[in-house]
Every structure is written in structure tokens, then in C-alpha cells.
Design a protein around this nucleic acid. Sequence first.
DNA 1: CACGCTAGCCCG
DNA 2: GGGCTAGCGTGC
Length: 844
Amino acid sequence: MMYRMAKVIVDVPSRETDRPFDYLIPESMSEWIEVGSRVGVPFGRRTVQGFVVSLHEEPEMDKSRMKPIQELLDLLPPLPHDLVELAAWMSKKYACSMISTLQLMIPAALKGKAERYIHLNEDNEVSGELDEGALFALPSVLSREEEEIISYLRSSGPVTMSHLSLRYPAHSKLIKGLLGNGILSESQSIKDKIRKKTIKTVAATVSGEEAEIALASFGAQARRQKEVLNFLLEVGVTLSLQEVLSTLQVTAGTVKKLVEKGYAVIEDVEVFRDPYQDRHFKGTVPLERTPEQDYVYNALINTLNKRTNDVFLLHGITGSGKTEVYLQTIERCISMGRQAIVLVPEISLTPQMVERFKGRFGAKVAVMHSRLSTGERYDEWRKIREGRVEVAIGARSAVFAPFKDLGLIVMDEEHETSYKQEETPKYHTRDVAVRRAQQHGAAVILGSATPSLESYYAARSKSDDNFAPILLEMNQRASGSSLPGVHIVDMREELKEGNRSMFSRALHSGIASRLERGEQTVLLLNRRGHSTFVMCRSCGYVAGCSECDISLTYHQKSNNLRCHYCGYSAPAPSICPECGSEHIRYFGTGTQRVEGELSKLFPGIRVIRMDVDTTSEKGSHEKLLQAFREKKGDVLLGTQMVAKGLDFPDVTLVGVIAADTALNFPDFRSAEKTFQLLTQVAGRAGRHQLPGEVVIQSYVPDHYSIVHASGHDYNSFVREELNHRKALHYPPYSRLILVTMSHEKLPLLLRMAENFVVELKGKAQKHGWYGSLDRFMPEALDILGPVASPMPRIKNRYRFQCMVKYRGNIDAVSLVRETASATVDNLRDASLQISIDVDPQMLM
DNA sequence: CACGCTAGCCCG
DNA sequence: GGGCTAGCGTGC
């Protein structure tokens, strides 16, 4: 006798339960349970949700110890096999639990929780020895209240525990007692968060002669019923009840009467919630390709035809028509019977982008983004899972779209840091996309005007076996227009010449002339987070760390400057250490202040401000952009959300108020981020007939990121930036793992953090890895810290971090994970938390 | 001694 | 994560 068994990952987020548990598959489910099935299983003293990750058979064994799967939650397993495999790969790569990666792949609506049901114990009746009357003859005489509870349950059937305690709030003790002596018993069942949406439909059940007879049978009083039946017969198809009621102006009662007479039926029919149901998308046809587009398109189609699973890095300047290439390649992919995923950063999933895909592919597209409700997201996901759509467009999580035969994954703006999830599991969408494509034999297109250094370097060096993209370039704008001229303004000079305003004279006169000509201006002020930095307004000096080549962060509470990498700290200066000026300040101008200033300088100016404050409401993002498009605003002022993907023909001026903002973040990627942002925003100007102009204001106008952005010179920027990275052993010349530890007690935390580092060094040494990255060794691993985290205390917990820097073919993640586990195990409680961030993007 | 609280334990 | 239990403190 062989027993069918399933290994199940349970939805219990703790380190000890992060492994598969074995369950028996009951005979009744044996046809239905598959890898990827969602099940309810007994776990400890309760029922929890879990996912089947493998099936196996076992010979005769001690069956009494094995528990069976209690319930199967879906007929179609929510996870195809490839996603289960991907989840395992991710949990290893990112040092996180399997359940946390599985959870990414299904909509939140399917995160079921157990409900406790109370019912009358039927044993009494079943045994036949005690009839209902005998129940009350039990030795312990039941009280009046107990009898009341019992009789309620007899009439209602099983109810949830919460329902019962709501009805009898004062009697929880009694209920407990009844459970204890076996009169009541308890069972558990997994319940989903939401239901499939249904609507009521009406259809006639009669036709032809029967219908004639029916119609004739209505008296004068049933005039309305006759009307309804006539209408149903005329239309001849099933209609929604809502539609019938509103068209004929009748009430539900009328229709109900018809149903009672047997001439019609009302049925519940499942429908998909459609977030775009009120929107009409104008269809578009493929545009004629430019020679450059044609070259790139053919390269992609070639891969699709040959199923060679290539990764492409498409470096195309702003306005070069990358999206059109995506659209046409996807069209081809679909025509081959395969499906496509389009990934965009959350911030650029604008209505414009959705419109372009809906316009080309209509109902074949599912859209997934964070603004959808749980139900809407569930339904978009179901469309994919059930094979009703062929294209999925969305942010990060769309990479998990459960398609059957994926042919293509497009990742637009591949350099965007929002592709890295900052919460556990801290995965990078690019790596997951490449892995998923491998599973399906699909092609990947990474597109950007400013590719990340990691991707670009990988394409150039071909040193990484798993990730070596093929570089494709597009250097011409599709419209034939040229890139806008860029003017850098030295704000130190402005100050010297008496201009204390936040607008340089060039930007001021630029805005003025746009107002006169009725053209539009986009203003960028990139102020995210609260970090401030210290700068001298006379000479542009910014306090930086001598060890790490990054700027120091001002800490108001302790009034000192700190390096977020190595822990160096110094008192905040009151005069500039370079030029002795007293104009030392911490910099920080918000969008609101700019808005006020604009109205002062240009009375009557219409400013549309777009930042986190004005776009939090649902649909507000869309409304603001629509207003700007309809020229209800002269200036669009905003944070980086105005830099991406917008295409307005009358925008001829782009102004960057403070190009240095991103530059002064304590992050080795700050130059790269500055270059990317400036290049992106400059690309918003002069995209059509009217020529564009860009004004960049800066206190460090000769910084290479600003100079090369103004020259639209990606290659020179990359050359210079790679030199810096190489000298300091930063990615792409090394890989990083950021380990953050937190505890309520500072001394204990410090001790544990130091322990951790010592342990990790010891392990690395044993492998012969530990050592400085300076020395020429193909495999090297270095550990920096522990130091206090940039945010040293959050929610009453102290935080320390250390940075693991390594290169070569080393499984550093497993090393860190094992060390972290051992460190936590040393304390016999769960008070110490260790977070592991593999390939961190944010170092704060 | 009856009750309440919490630290520790384990889940197939 | 959560539910249960053993062990201990507290209050009449």
C-alpha cells in the first residue's frame, strides 16, 4: 500500500516553520491536488493556509502520526509549477522564507485565514442512544442560559465563534464549558478575504408559441410584467437585472413575479471587476518603423522566432520610440500564441502608458498597479491565470503574472530603483525577470535612456554567465526632432551677483517668455525623504566623508554630521571649512515653497503642483496631467514623477531647480541617480515641432554627472562613473549585502552585532575568502561595520548595520544567512531581528 | 486556593 | 504566528 503525500509550505511567517511539512492526501482530493494547490491544513491546534510544493508516495508507515489535508481551496491551482520553482529560487537568493516569496505570486484576496465554527455536537443523535430529550438529562443540569444557546445553535446551524460571542457577550465562559463537556464542538475552515463579484441576470424561459400564450395570459393589471417579458423576448439574450430595471423603469418586484410564474429566471453570474470600465481607449495601429526601430525590432523578432531566450539591453535616447518597438514586438509574440509581460516603474505607470497598451491590444491586456482595490487586482490576476488575456502590464509584481507560455518580458526604465522591493522579500525585479524568462525560454528587453551601470557593465564585460545582455542602441528621436539644448546655471554666481531667489535669471526669463508665447514649462524639484545635507552657499562646498567618498548627513538631534557607511561623525560646522564663509546651511526647498514663489514673481500664473501630497487621492495623478494637457496650467511643478514618460507637445522649457539634491544623498549611486534624473527630465522638452530648452540650476555645475547630462553623453558619464566605482570596489565591481540588526536594548544589540561580524569573518576565513577587496584576488569578501544605521532607532528599537562587500563566485548569501540564524538562536527569544538585504539599492 | 499573566514551546 | 501550558505572582 502506497500513501499519496504532499509537502506543504504553511502560511506561518516564522523562521522555524520555513520548511515543508508532510500531509496525507485524502482519497477524495487525490485527483485535484497538484503542485501549486492552495490547501487548508491542520497545524498545531488550528487550521492554516498552505501551498503544495511537491508530491510523493510513501509505503506503509505510521499513519496515525500523519495528518491529512483538510480542504482544497481552489479547483485551479493558483500557482503554476514554474512559479513554485521560482519562489524557491528567490528564497535562496534573497535569504527570505519560502512563504514570503509564494505570497508575492498570488493576489492578496487569496490570503485566507481560518474561521472557527461552533456547532452542536451530533454524536448524541448519531449514536442513537441519546435522543434530543436525553441531552437535557445529562448528569450536569444545564442552566437556562445554556439551554438558550443550544436551542439557538439548533435553529441556526454552525456559526462562527465571533458571531456567537457577539450574540452572547456575557456567556463566553458558558460556551467554553459546553465545548469542554462535548455538547458543542468546534471546527475550522479557511475563508478568503473577498468573493468573486456576481451580478443578477434575467432571461426569459419561454419562446415561440409558449411565449405567445404567456403574453396573452396577462391581465390588464399585469401590464408591467407583460412589458418586461416582451422586452426580454425582443432582445433574446441574457441581460443584467440592473439593465432591465433601468431601461423599462420597473421595480425588481415586477421581474420577481415573472420568475414566480415561471416565465423568466434570475441567476447570479460571475463578473470581472474592470478598473477601466468607464474608459474608452481609441484603437491604434502600428506606426511605420524608423530604420533604427526596424533594426532593433528585427533583432528581437529573430530571438522570438528562434526561442533563444536572449536578454537585450535597449539603450535608446528619450523620444527614440522604444515603446512602439515594445508594442510591435509584443504583437508578434502574441501572434505566435505566447504571452508577454510589460514591467514599468510604479511612478511611470501613467494613464498615458496604459492608454498606449489598451489602445493597441484592447481587452487582451490586464493592468496591475498599487492603486487597484483588492478585488480589482484579484480579477485582473484571474484574467491572466484563466488565459483570458495575453499581455500583463504593471509594476514589480507583474513579473509574477501566471502565464502559461511566456514569450517576452519587457522592462521599461530598467534603471529605476523602485524595481527593487524595499520590504521583505527584498527582490530585484530585473533578476527575477531574467530567471523567469529562462524558465519559459522567453526573451527579455531591458529598456532605458540611461541604463543602470550594473546592466550596462554586464552587457559590455560579458563576465557574468547568468546575466550578459546584448546591447542595442537607438540614438535618433523617432519624430526627427533633436534633443533640447541644455543650459547649466551656476547658482554660486547668481548669489554673488545679488540674486538670492531660487530662480536664476535664465530660468526666470525662460518662464516669462513661455508665458508670453502660451507654451508650457515643466519644473522639477527632487525632494524626497527628509534627509538634509550641509552646504556652503558661497563656494558650494558639501561636507563629505574622506573614507567613503559620499556626502555626510546632518543629524539635527545631535547636531553633527555622519557618514552612513563607515560611521564617521563630526560636529556640524558653523563656518565653511573651505572658504570660511558663514553662509553654511542645510539645504532644503520643497515644492510648496516654489509654488508660492512662482505666484509672487508671475502674478496670475497657473501652477499645477504634482507631488506625494497632491497625488495621494485615487485618480488625482490622472486629473492633474489631463488638466496640464488641456493647457489649464502654465507650469507643471513636481518631484521626480514629472520626469518620467510624459509627452506634451507644447512643453518647450524644462527647469531643474536644484540639480544637486540627489547628488548629496549619502549613497554611492547618487551621481548615477542625478545623471539619470536630469537626462529623463530633459527629455520632456521639445519632443514635437517646437524646439525645447532645458535650464539646470546647480551649486556644483562642473560635477561630471551634470556636465555629461547636459551634453546628453551617456557613454562619457559611464566611463567616468565606472572609474570611481572600480577604485572604491562598489558595484558593478563587487556585490553588496546589507545586514541590519535591531533590538530594544542597545548594549545587547551592540554585543550581538559584534558577535555577528566576528562569526561571519571566521566563516569567510575558513573558506579562504576573507580579505580586502584591494588585493588582487578573484574571490574576496570584506565586512564593514557594525555601525549605527542611518535611522538609529525606529519604533523603540535600536538599529545597527554592517555591509558585506564581495566579488567572485562566492555564496555569500548563505554564509550571511547561516550566521544570522546562529546569532538569533543564541538568544532563546525572538527579540533580536536581523534583516538581510541582498544587492541593496537604498543604503539608508 | 482560585484566578490572571507571561514566558516558552511547538506545530507534520 | 498563535494557542496552549506550566509556573509563578497576587488578592481575598
